[in-house]
């Protein structure tokens, strides 16, 4: 067997790379979701000072390239603070922050889509602001947000491929390694692209299923 031919071990490499990509995606989505939602809740409570600050931060994160943010965290932060940042840490910090910014924007739009009548009819019955958020606003906002959210997550999965440039051995990095060894770029990148496609499709399918469930109440089932 020649050095350049594919082996079954390459499949394990690809699976590992995919695992790293998906794990990073899941972890940063979770962190980003938490942070973005907390930001949106602070805005719902109209926390003074913090709200404009969060909006500004989200704007910054949204409107600058993720790759630049990644370099800033990986190269810039260690230089400034004299600390050590590993590639994985830099990837988690950057992608979480980026996801948080977009989730914040989606969550704010979703909360603002809830009619004032909904909040008023809960207020007159004496529900507290938290109870209104929890029982009236959040479920409806979630049904509104799930579509854009699914789109965002499909995109954020692709964005994880950027982290290969700082040396995280994700699916793209594995693709690079295999490509250099086998010198068969078309096959390698087709397979890698196909794996991203399948993962993205699963996210989209999951999102669509959740959306159907969350919007079940709008369906007319006849009298």
């Amino acid at each position: 067997m020649r050095y350049t031919s594919f082996t079954s071990y390459d499949l394990i490499l690809l699976a590992q790379g995919l695992g790293v990509s998906v794990a990073l995606f899941l972890v940063t989505t979770l962190i980003g979701f938490l942070i973005g939602t907390i930001w949106a809740v602070m805005r719902f409570y109209r926390v003074p000072l913090l709200t404009p600050l969060i909006t500004f931060l989200a704007e910054l994160l949204k409107n600058s390239p993720v790759l630049v943010q990644l370099f800033l965290v990986f190269f810039g932060l260690p230089a400034l603070l004299k600390i050590n940042v590993t590639p994985v840490e830099a990837a988690v910090i950057t992608l979480s922050g980026n996801t948080a910014a977009f989730i914040y924007v989606i969550a704010v739009a979703a909360i603002e889509s809830i009619g004032r009548d909904q909040i008023e009819s809960a207020r007159v019955f004496g529900l507290s602001r938290w109870q209104i958020l929890r029982h009236v606003v959040a479920p409806q906002a979630m049904a509104f947000a799930i579509g854009p959210l699914t789109g965002l997550l499909v995109n954020q999965l692709q964005v994880t491929s950027l982290i290969s440039v700082i040396g995280v051995v994700d699916l793209t990095k594995i693709g690079n390694i295999l490509n250099l060894r086998t010198l068969k770029p078309f096959i390698v990148w087709t397979v890698v692209g196909g794996l991203y496609y399948i993962a993205a499709k699963l996210i989209a399918l999951g999102g669509a299923r959740l959306e159907r469930r969350l919007r079940a109440h709008t369906a007319w089932k006849g009298l």
């Binding site: 009548d117 009819s121 809960a122 007159v124 529900l127 109870q131 029982h135 009236v136 409806q140 109440h217």
Partner: peptide, 27 residues
């Protein structure tokens, strides 16, 4: 006091019985 609204203002994501029980349970 309790208010009934012109445009109902029911919570669309809750069933009739959930609409009716929300405030009694929470408040």
């Amino acid at each position: 006091s309790a208010t009934v609204f012109q445009l109902f203002n029911l919570y669309p994501h809750m069933t009739a019985v959930e609409n009716v029980t929300l405030a009694p349970i929470q408040v």
